[in-house]
Amino acid sequence: MVDAALERPAAAGAVRKPSALRRRLQRKSTIAFLMTLPLILLIAALVIYPALYSLHLATLNKSMERFVGLSNFAFLFKRQTFWMVVKQSCIFAITAVIFKALIGFVVAHFVHNIPTKGQRKWRGMLLVPWVIPPAMSTLAWLWLFDPSYSAFNWLLAKFGVEAIPWTAEAGWARFSVILVNVWIGSPFFMIMYLAALKSVPEQLYEAAAIDGANWWQRIWYVTLPMMRNIIAITALFSLIVTFANFDIVRILTAGGPIDQTHVFATWAFWIGIQGGDIPLGAAVSLFMVPILSIAAIFILRDINRRGNEA
């Protein structure tokens, strides 16, 4: 009805005998399609096509002349480094996400506890790690972890603790990359949880207090159930981003010592771009797909459900 109202003056003002093409171009769905066309082209050419192309690439030999089937994958399965990368990627992503969620939750509570007046200031300050480009802040961490001039080790020495080989020893290097990731990511959780905390109705807490709930029970029976959705979706988002992380590992350890801290992204870069074996690199990065798609399915399900509720 509204469309008809729109088209009448437009048609009257237009050329006397509107051609079929022109009429078609004026139709609402055609206009809409043309408006989304750049988006569709971009996604098709630079996201969907490369994603499918990497499936094809992974089945070629190193010089990309011959189809070798699944032998790239078979080769990877036989390599010890590959399994180390799988293990490290999972440890890295899962540990980092758990700690980000915990720290984000705790900090969000503390910010929520203080008077509203001061919250803005604190929130602004605590989000700084998220704002700085990760490559830049990881450089600062690299300098803090420097083998000979580490400012942390200087502090530790004041307390009589031995110097820690932050990036030189496998266990500590793994700890360091996770620490930096947690440092960068937990402010994001904090912001999300803070927004969720604000949306929990105050009456629920009052009712719980009247029923004699202590602070732990209030968190367990009121806050957590009310925030369940946002906790899940933030964690899944973060799992995807963390699992596919590149910047931190690349700058902090470059995968070392002896490939012990490589994750899929950095190892794929190492093999595919620096090592020049594009098919093998593509094969490595494809191993990210299963865990990413599981997380994506859960996120989508959640979003669709909320879409239906709205």
């Binding site: 809409a32 996604i43 192309y53 990497s54 690439l57 593509a282 990065s285 990413l292 979003i303």
Partner: peptide
Amino acid sequence: MKFWGSATLATGVFLTYLIPETLLFIPLFK
């Protein structure tokens, strides 16, 4: 402006956002 496939496309856009660049840089390079 609802048109054929617009709902699917909206979901697809969101899915694209979930594809990390670390998955795409090697095929794009090639």
